[in-house]
């Protein structure tokens, strides 16, 4: 039991760390490409979406890749 929980916990941690690594890239380049509303947005806004980026990064990454391909 404890082993399974440790594995799940580690996987979750890695997922979140990947999200954290994705955050600066996304804030600098991706965000204005996937959402025109982010052009000229404040740094406060960019900071407030940090927890969301760390949690939902695969959705943003997918959207970004699709838009870059176009």
């Amino acid at each position: 039991m404890e082993q399974i929980i440790t594995i799940v916990f580690t996987v979750a941690l890695v997922y979140l760390l990947l999200g954290l690594a994705f955050y600066p890239l996304f804030i600098i380049k991706g965000i204005t490409q996937i959402d025109p509303g982010a052009k000229g947005s404040s740094w406060g806004f960019r900071l407030i979406i940090l927890p969301g980026v760390v949690l939902f990064w695969p959705a943003l990454m997918r959207k970004w890749i699709v838009i870059r391909k176009k």
């Binding site: 996937i34 959402d35 509303g37 982010a38 806004f45 407030i48 979406i49 927890p51 969301g52 949690l55 939902f56 959705a59 943003l60 959207k63």
Partner: peptide
């Protein structure tokens, strides 16, 4: 509750 709070900004409404 964390998922909801983290996605509460309108940015998430548009992008998710």
């Amino acid at each position: 509750l964390l998922l909801m709070a983290a996605s509460s900004h309108d940015f998430w409404l548009h992008n998710l």
